[in-house]
Nucleic acid binder design. Sequence first.
DNA 1: TGTTGTTGTTTCATTATTTGAACCACTGGT
DNA 2: ACCAGTGGTTCAAATAATGAAACAACAACA
Lengths: 255, 255
Amino acid sequence: MGTVTKALELLNIVANSHAPLGLTALANKAQYDKATTRRMLLELLANGFVEQDSESRNYGLGPALQSLGKLRESRFPLVKTVQPFVRALAKQTEEMVHATEYGNGILYSISVEESTKANRISLELGQKLPLHATASGIAFLAASTDSFIEAALKKPLVSFTPQTSIDRKNLMKSIVETSARGYSISNQTFDEGVHSVAAAYFSANGKPLGTIAIAMPTLRATPKMIAANGKLVSRAVADISASLGFNKLHLRSAS
Amino acid sequence: MGTVTKALELLNIVANSHAPLGLTALANKAQYDKATTRRMLLELLANGFVEQDSESRNYGLGPALQSLGKLRESRFPLVKTVQPFVRALAKQTEEMVHATEYGNGILYSISVEESTKANRISLELGQKLPLHATASGIAFLAASTDSFIEAALKKPLVSFTPQTSIDRKNLMKSIVETSARGYSISNQTFDEGVHSVAAAYFSANGKPLGTIAIAMPTLRATPKMIAANGKLVSRAVADISASLGFNKLHLRSAS
DNA sequence: TGTTGTTGTTTCATTATTTGAACCACTGGT
DNA sequence: ACCAGTGGTTCAAATAATGAAACAACAACA
């Protein structure tokens, strides 16, 4: 594994820690030597990718990420495009609605609107959602090529709840059903007590970019609800894909 | 220089290129070998920090930055804190108001409210504003340490309009005047026909974080207007700094 | 006050990675 | 067919990363 990747994984560890961590804690989590960890943190620090609290000496995400993120967003305004649909769906359903974007083998939540109800599902922005264990992930796979699915299912699959399926055949079945249905359904496969439906949206060149999902407590997930929400996410992703320039007739490759 | 820093600088080069560049172009810009550049890009690619267009094979900023940026923002909600002040100022002045955040030697626009007037100034989110040629930049420098100013003025200074001052002594004079006045004034130093006033806001530990600026067409920039807007930005940054101090204390208690 | 257990920090011989010149394969233009 | 661009690959040599161990600074506690 290259040094750069190691450093970036360290950065991911910093990102995935809810509270800022110190040197030794990070070294332990990353399984790197203390000295190595420190040198990497110093380099990340010098470039503004992490930040160090001057008193606690703990490390957190740095300001460079904010500016680079803004820059990326300004070049590819996905959030801006998707957010209105997420808000509209949230208002309509009164449930938690979120959008994800695919990147690096996983889905990232890029827009979240929580429900106003007392019993509601929460999700952090930037949260990582594994492909095999979430409604969003299955919806994304169902929109992907066979070779992509194969590659994704070849990786080791982690179980998050007793309901998480890590059986390849079962997952393929879910994917096929999702393709036929137009949206995915997942019951407590990632978080206990959370029921979700999701569908994928596409970029102009026809590749799936991410998903829209509606999540609610299992208590409220009646068959009628599920079907209604499924139709809603299906329509939302069709509209989003359209506004991203995706046209189903656009199958010929250019030039 | 460590390998990690080299890779991150390469990432910065990708970020600073307005259009996605190919391998050799990036290698030239970075002054690295082609093979080196490629390996770094592959590692950045594998981690989602850059993205490769499958047709042109050019590299652009990757989706991981968007999610990490969101994550950083959720932990350190600068935009959320600053935005209300920007909106309030925009409503009050009916001119374009924007906030910037410092990062990596430059200011980035992180919140923009445009004027409702027909003749108005526009600014994109994520736009980069050089320190020496903008009201925001001069305001930021005026709030910085002497050694920081010295380092910033040591770099090569680019001219954007005939009014851009690239003379160090002149710039120092502007900085000193800004310190005394409490806000900076810049007349068409970055964009022709744009007049701006700006002031810097501070984090809890007393370091300048970014600026608030009001920009208007030079036509409307009467001395009275300038003075009034200057007072407004001064008051706004004082309020923002105060509310950032609170946030910082809040974060510390959490860890 | 001394002891113990934490931190973060530095060192340096060992080790493994990075480096880059040269080379290959491909594409589009002439 | 040729040339001038790409991106991509190779492998010995150069260099940077590694990690065990020692060190320092601090806090908790008897």
